[in-house]
């Protein structure tokens, strides 16, 4: 099948300095079969509810030759890719909606927001508190801690430390929690869009 030959390694060649896409998708599928259960077949109408399909066979489903007329030089049965490239935008909208509803995407979104929203609130609050303290409690900020260091310097250096720490934590969270799943979903989605 042409699809399986060309599904994703082609694009992966550009990014060989990070995870090889084919390997990543495979690994993702093998470790978490439910995750990549994005409906491979674009939903023809908006009313059809496309819940995450339990069958983990995302790429293998042949797409119905919906817009064969629009592709005069490509017969859908022979070259589905060409037909796919010419389908109008409404279909890609359905693909995006279906992916958005899928469990795999919801997982990615949840893990992103669950980390980023509380953390952003925390560091913005901590920074604004620190700046506000200069205006509100100058006496406290002046009190000596050790040697020439006072509370203000200590908190300032702590701001540097927390910034570096949060950068590292965010990168670790992204790397372990969502990078692989997002990459798998990217190729799956792009396969459907073509």
């Amino acid at each position: 099948m042409p699809q399986q030959q060309t599904s994703s390694p082609g694009q992966g060649q550009r990014f060989d300095w990070w995870a090889a896409p084919a390997a990543a998708t495979d690994a993702d599928r093998s470790t978490a079969p439910g995750r990549s259960a994005v409906p491979a077949q674009p939903v023809p109408t908006r009313t059809v509810q496309q819940a995450p399909v339990q069958a983990a066979q995302p790429v293998a489903v042949e797409r119905p030759p919906v817009r064969a007329a629009a592709a005069p030089l490509a017969e859908p049965a022979v070259e589905p890719a060409a037909a796919r490239a010419l389908v109008p935008a409404t279909d890609s909208t359905e693909v995006y909606r279906a992916v958005q509803r899928s469990e795999a995407f919801q997982d990615i979104r949840r893990s992103y927001r669950a980390f980023v929203f509380p953390t952003s609130g925390a560091f913005l609050g901590w920074y604004l508190l620190y700046v506000a303290a200069q205006a509100a409690a100058p006496g406290l900020m002046r009190s000596q801690v050790a040697g020439p260091l006072n509370v203000a310097w200590l908190l300032g250096l702590l701001q540097f430390a927390t910034t570096f720490l949060l950068t590292w934590l965010y990168a670790r969270n992204a790397r372990t929690k969502r990078d692989r799943a997002a990459l798998g979903l990217r190729w799956d989605t792009q396969d459907q869009l073509r």
Binding site: S92, T93, Y96, R97, V99, Q100, F105, I108, R109, Y112, R178, A182, L183, L185, R186, T189, Q190, L193
Partner: peptide
Amino acid sequence: TDRFAELEVRALTGAG
């Protein structure tokens, strides 16, 4: 909401 679905999927996965 269709456009938002496209934006969200693209932004978080990089599809397209």
